[in-house]
Design a protein around this nucleic acid. Sequence first.
DNA 1: ATGGTGGAAGGTCCA
Length: 265
Amino acid sequence: MPLTVCTWNINSVRLREGLVQRLLREEAPDILCLQETKSPVAKIPTEGFAALGYGTIVARGEKGYNGVAILSRLPLAELPHRDFCGRGDARHVAARIAQGPAEGVEIHNLYIPAGGDEPDPAINPKFDHKLRFVEELGDWSAGRRGPAILVGDLNIAPGEDDVWSHRQLLNVVSHTEPEITRFEAARAAGNWADIARILQPQGKLYSWWSYRASDWEASDRGRRLDHVWASPEIAGAARASRVLKAARGWEKPSDHAPVFATFDL
DNA sequence: ATGGTGGAAGGTCCA
């Protein structure tokens, strides 16, 4: 049975409730993980999602910033989240699929700090926070076991083909050496498979295009910031991966496009 | 080298 998971930085779930509904109607993933919901959990507009079959929602939120949510048409059991960097931020939410062929698979939805502009932890506390967050992701990954899918806006584009210009972004936060080193170390620590690159090792892949371009599509200065990782138990079941680039062109879009992965479980 | 846009809060910070 196929299990399709989607991850999307929505940049306000309340402002873009209609876009979320459109995605659910047109693409119908089994599970949709959202980041930057920017809403307290109680104010997430759940009714319309439930009416579309996504009555299971596990979320964490705060007012105005951060926020992560898992919408599902499969039953979920919420799992404890980790308070990365001990700040109480709503950057991780987790659940276990509770029924069906994928029963027992854990879903981890993460929003890694963007890290600010200056890629120097000595003068930029946001970049320091980002580096420590990714280090902690490695520690946590090394200690966990069992079938799992980790998705989210990880805010790092690790490969040369994950950015529009490797050379021009080497000193731009999201593609710097200290970030990428820690990112790949964290992935290795959990034996996570990068599903998009398992299925397409070469060629440009982006999931984010800045709002600050006069024509995002024409300039196509994208980065792959949104990821789907799978644990070794299920990485081999990955069958498909894609970016719904069209959603970046929807009315009043998020600056991120949804990323999908399908597993035969 | 710079500034460009967008969301939310609320007279600014974050991305």
